[in-house]
Design a protein around this nucleic acid. Structure first.
Lengths: 341, 341
DNA sequence: CGGCCAATTGAAAGCGCTTTGGATGGCCGG
DNA sequence: CCGGCCATCCAAAGCGCTTTCAATTGGCCG
């Protein structure tokens, strides 16, 4: 059933039917009701393309996530982020179009996404320190919001980010207050902006406390369980092993814990661990008592907010770039304690 | 730049340009090259809606994943599945449209997805034992592939599934061969088809070995780390604690391991654990030596295959339902050993 | 040399919707 | 009784592409 058929059926013109359904004022209320009833009865849904063609609105948002050789995985936070974003889209009738692109042809994909005109806006995931995608998107005049920032890009753009620097600074401060001096960082890949900032916060706190950052106590890589295990195992067999770890993700923290337990060290007593916790649905940090002391910020919330920002920008294309900084909370769990001896 | 402009620019008609770009044979090769060059030079990309309107093809696939109150999370396997599917879509120029729906209005969403006509096919995730969505989709005459099956639905439809029953049967057999008699199962929610099948395999193997399945040694729930920890902790303090565990996911297995280590039990020596391993990118089961003995099947592969099946069905709408059963491999790791004493 | 065919290109009619620019008719004040 | 103003409704022109049908060429055969 299409507009015309519905109109014929009602003895009205397509014009009136269209207006009735889209809430235009110049149609009699009685007519509108009649049209709406008929539409429901015949299960009429406007054809999305025809609508798109006619209005120039895509009613769909592109989420682009890069998949490279060195970073093959779809980051697990992505699922939660999207869940949040979806909440916003569903309310407003937008679709979510997912595009995984390999680094190589990324630029091309953006250009074609934008040119094909079937997208009203883009959410960019996983920005690097210096991310050329941002420049590119700015030239495309397509509204976009970055999930994260690119430290080295000084231009103005919309983003939503967790205060990574501050979070890791606070976590480090807590460990220092507990008397730890040899603190290790097991970070994500540091060409990723979030990881870079986390290290900055970590290092800043150390320096402020008069502790020399030890490169041997910093490791970065794809945030797997294995990374945590390996990094911790290596570091623990150094002559002066760390007494505390900072982990960039729960999964990595689990690996660190495995390394500890493997050598008979007790978590929170012999060695302290603080992790960042994205509050993912399937990897909760305990339900009542947190397992790990953690800096926590819900990535799902971030997703919802990012989507709302983008929709806002689509509604009002002239609005200035929106920027949202989310502070992580520092929650105390059972994985931290005073430095031993 | 649109078709007409490009055509004017070239001194050709839109017809010819369209044909040249879409590989129709009735255009002179020299012209085709000229057109293609111009298209590239001007960065021309056809407008997706206009194309959709004209051809009736959406060039996009819907992935629908249910999000309910009791099952709020976007399952982590989903990310990997989609990565695989994307590989197939990118090659063929399809888009991936993601829809998270809450159980309540799920039927409605399908209907409208189909009616709006902006989708060529659907991939259905997370089927329940008796899943009415399958019936619904069949009436919508929109090609679809189910990731998993619905045991209680006897109708014919396309699916791709891992042989859950067989996988857990084999894992159980292995444990029995190792001398274990008290084997526990920590499963996913058993209204989900995959979990139901896993239990069936588990129970079948027990019975065949003359072991009475003990309901106290079976636990089901959202597959979190916490579930593993709680289930294992509870079971281990029973008078006759299990000597082996079967886990439905790596994350759960990590929780079980935590419970073991918490009470000083050694993995693989005091207590054996076998888990199912979806071979997720960010949760590898060790790189060289597997941490856990596991039944393994790549969910990413499944995603790619599912997408290919669906594209196949779209190409040839009359083809019979396609069905693919993937066997998991049983890989030996360090988490299993002979039953103690 | 005329006609037929293959090769190549165009004109124009949609696809289903929105939206501009009228129509139409009832009602008002003058 | 008439011009003007609303309130409603409609015709028709797109939106950018595909595709059917037709036109134009040049080559080749008889």
């Amino acid at each position: 059933m299409n507009l015309k058929e519905l109109a014929d059926h009602l003895g009205l013109s397509p014009t009136t039917v269209s207006r009735a359904l889209n809430g235009y004022p110049e149609v009699k209320e009685a007519t509108r009701l009649r049209v709406q009833a008929a539409a429901r009865a015949h299960n009429y849904t406007p054809n999305a393309w025809a609508k798109g063609l006619a209005t120039g609105r895509a009613m769909s948002i592109g989420h682009v996530i890069p998949v490279s050789k060195t970073h093959e995985m779809v980051n697990p936070v992505f699922g939660d982020f999207i869940t949040g974003a979806s909440e916003a889209y569903v309310k407003t009738g937008y679709d979510l179009k997912l595009t995984l692109v390999s680094d190589a042809d990324e630029a091309e994909r953006y250009r074609s996404l934008s040119a094909r005109g079937n997208i009203d806006g883009i959410i960019l995931h996983g920005p690097h320190l210096s991310d050329r995608r941002i420049e590119l998107l700015r030239t495309l005049d397509l509204p976009f919001v970055v999930h994260g920032r690119a430290s080295e890009m000084k231009m103005d753009y919309s983003w939503i980010d967790m205060n990574n620097t501050r979070a890791f600074e606070r976590a480090t401060e807590l460990l220092i207050e507990l008397g730890h001096r040899r603190i290790a960082l097991v970070n994500g890949q540091e060409h990723m902006d979030f990881a870079f900032r986390r290290r900055e916060g970590f290092v800043a706190a150390l320096i402020r406390a008069g502790i020399d950052p030890d490169p041997g106590l910093m490791r970065a890589g794809e945030m797997t369980e294995e990374l945590g295990y390996r990094a911790a195992s290596d570091m623990l067999q150094r002559p002066y092993p760390p007494t505390a770890f900072l982990a960039s993700s729960m999964v990595t923290a689990l690996g660190i814990r495995r390394a500890l337990e493997g050598r008979g060290l007790r978590l929170g007593t012999d060695v302290s661990v603080i992790t960042h916790d994205d509050d993912l649905g399937y990897l909760r940090n305990g339900t009542d008592v947190p397992i790990f002391t953690a800096t926590r910020a819900s990535v799902r919330d971030a997703g919802r907010q990012a989507a709302e920002m983008l929709l806002q920008m689509i509604r009002d294309p002239s609005c200035a770039p929106l920027q949202t900084l989310i502070e992580a909370e520092l929650i105390l769990g059972q994985s931290t304690g005073p430095a031993p001896g």
